[in-house]
Design a protein around this nucleic acid. Structure first.
Length: 489
RNA sequence: GGCACGUUGGAGAAGCGGUUUAACUCACCAGCCUUUCACGCUGGCAUUCAGGGGUUCGAAUCCCCUACGUGUCACCA
């Protein structure tokens, strides 16, 4: 495989947003090129003018930028094989399609969409799946010429051999064979003059020198038709690298192709949900690929390039697991510097906890090791934003042997010391409470519990008693202790 | 329905005919640590590789069949 310089491409269709499965395909194609000192091309496949979505190209390019998948040729950067947008290469395809007709490997078809629909309906009625009946395959040249000159609407179809078998070797799935009689005379050039994907990608991959076609395994069984096209032109076939599909788990436990019903499935959705680009990339890299002789899981792009190889790609589909993504994300969040993390949560904290006097920097610090996504911080700080109702039963704790009565006593005895405290920060407060515990003979754990509950008004909190007091500041902390004592009275 | 591909624990997976009593990670459970939670640490979690037949001295690893799953059969990509 090293006899030639590897050239791969990512060829998305701008028909929506960046699906995570698409991103993963882009990643693998990029990795294959970069890991072998090859080139990576981006090509926009916008031959379906009906499904075009405004702004989709920009989303695709932006995603590539955000994930660090740089390309050598493509939109915006150009290159020697441009243009890289298929709608701008329209005439190229016609020329090649006509060449195929001349070679007897393709033919003009004048069948109307209505007739095709009828064919389809009849097949469906017979409880089967029918294809095109090759009605125009053997039209006389004179008839074709005449109908063409009359300006009749037409498409150009590939002339698939009626007999025999077509095989190719996929780099991950091995040899794939398909009986020619199973294949349809697929349309190469549509009535609107645009090529189909089936044709355009073959022509472009050849013209752009793509050596390895990397794409999802949904193309596994249509590839024989593409291979036939290469053969018809007399072009060398590229290597094929089909990737296992990405699945999602449904509520009933069944799995199916990853889609919106499984939750956030576009790169943008995931960013919106608080995931970091590199965590997403790291996670999807491992969905369907595994490094050889290593148990490493945390990889940055450079490390992925080092470790990546085709034989690490598996054949079986994998289920996208948000739980594991969360773990990756929390690892990447922990890697963030305290300041960097603080910058990211701060907008959210300021919005949720606008009141003055709160130490949001301290809050951010507490949150750093406790969240798996930035957004998760939102539901964790409600108790800071407002004084939540607290069930007094929480003051009864078996491990620390506390009761509401004990807690009340603790709060009453500790309050004057807190009022007198001049240095309102964690370490000082902690020492203060410990000193009280030692002097009073009450267990330190009990003291911490009473104070934490009084201040937080919530059983489980992101931080201990004294850390939270630092967050609340002296005034609010004392006010809450005051409130707690009243409730316990 | 035809064809194609897949099937190792709840999820990602290693494994490529013999020291594998199936590695590692997430999740889960238990314990430790600890000012709760989280972090961290320790231990548990498939006697078995979809099922059934073969081949072999020996199979998760090779072959066949069955089951199940997914993909594909568009003037979509």
């Amino acid at each position: 495989m090293n006899e030639e310089k590897i050239v791969t491409r990512f060829a998305p269709s701008p028909t929506g947003f960046m699906h995570i499965g698409n991103l993963r395909t882009a990643l693998y194609a990029w990795l294959l090129a970069r890991a072998n000192g090859g080139r990576f091309i981006v090509r926009i496949e916008d031959t379906d003018q009906v499904r075009l979505v405004e702004g989709a190209v920009e989303v695709i390019l932006q995603t590539l930028r955000q994930t660090g998948l740089d390309y050598d040729e493509g939109p915006e950067v150009g290159g020697e094989h441009g243009p890289y947008v298929q709608s701008e290469r329209k005439e190229i395809y016609r020329k090649y399609a006509e060449e195929l007709v001349a070679k007897g490997q393709a033919y003009y078809c004048f069948c109307t969409p209505e007739r095709l629909q009828q064919l389809h309906d009849e097949a469906a009625a017979a409880d089967s799946v029918g294809g095109y009946d090759r009605h125009c395959r053997n039209l006389l040249p004179e008839e074709v010429a005449e109908r063409l000159s009359r300006g009749e609407s037409y498409v150009i179809r590939q002339k698939i051999p009626l007999e025999g078998v077509t095989s190719y070797t996929d780099e991950v799935f091995g040899e794939i064979s398909m009986e020619n009689k199973e294949m349809q005379d697929q349309i190469l050039l549509k009535a609107d003059g645009y090529p189909t994907y089936n044709f355009a990608h073959v022509v472009d991959d050849y013209l752009m020198g793509v050596t390895h076609v990397v794409r999802g395994s949904e193309y596994l069984t249509s590839t024989p038709k593409y291979v036939l096209l290469y053969d018809a032109f007399g072009w060398p076939r590229p290597h094929y690298v089909h990737l296992p599909l990405l699945m999602g788990q449904n509520e009933d436990g069944k799995i199916s192709k990853l889609s919106k019903r499984h939750g956030a499935v576009s790169f943008q959705d995931l960013l919106q949900a608080g995931y970091l680009p590199q965590a997403i990339v790291n996670y999807i890299a491992l969905l369907g690929w595994c490094p050889k002789d290593s148990n490493q899981e945390i990889f940055n792009l450079a490390e992925l390039c080092q470790a990546f190889s085709i034989d690490g790609i598996s054949k079986s589909p994998s289920v996208f697991d948000y739980g594991k993504l969360n773990w990756f994300n929390s690892e990447y969040i922990k890697q963030l510097s305290p300041t960097n993390f603080a910058e990211r949560v701060m907008p959210l904290l300021k919005q949720k906890c606008p009141s003055d006097g709160l130490n949001l920097d301290k809050l951010a610090q507490l949150l750093h090791t406790r969240v798996s996504t930035i957004n998760e911080a939102a539901n964790m700080v409600d108790f800071v934003a407002e004084r939540l109702p607290l069930d007094l039963a929480n003051y009864t704790n078996k491990k620390n042997k506390t009761t509401p009565e004990l807690c009340l006593r603790i709060l009453q005895e500790v309050q004057p010391r807190l009022v007198a405290c001049a240095d309102w920060q964690n370490d000082t407060l902690f020492e203060l409470l410990k000193a009280y515990a030692a002097e009073s003979g009450v267990k330190a754990g009990a003291v911490m519990l009473a104070v934490r509950l009084a201040v937080a008004r919530q059983a489980v909190t992101p931080g201990g008693a004294t850390e939270l007091m630092e967050v609340f500041g002296k005034a609010e902390s004392l006010a809450r202790i005051e409130l707690a004592m009243a409730e316990l009275q």
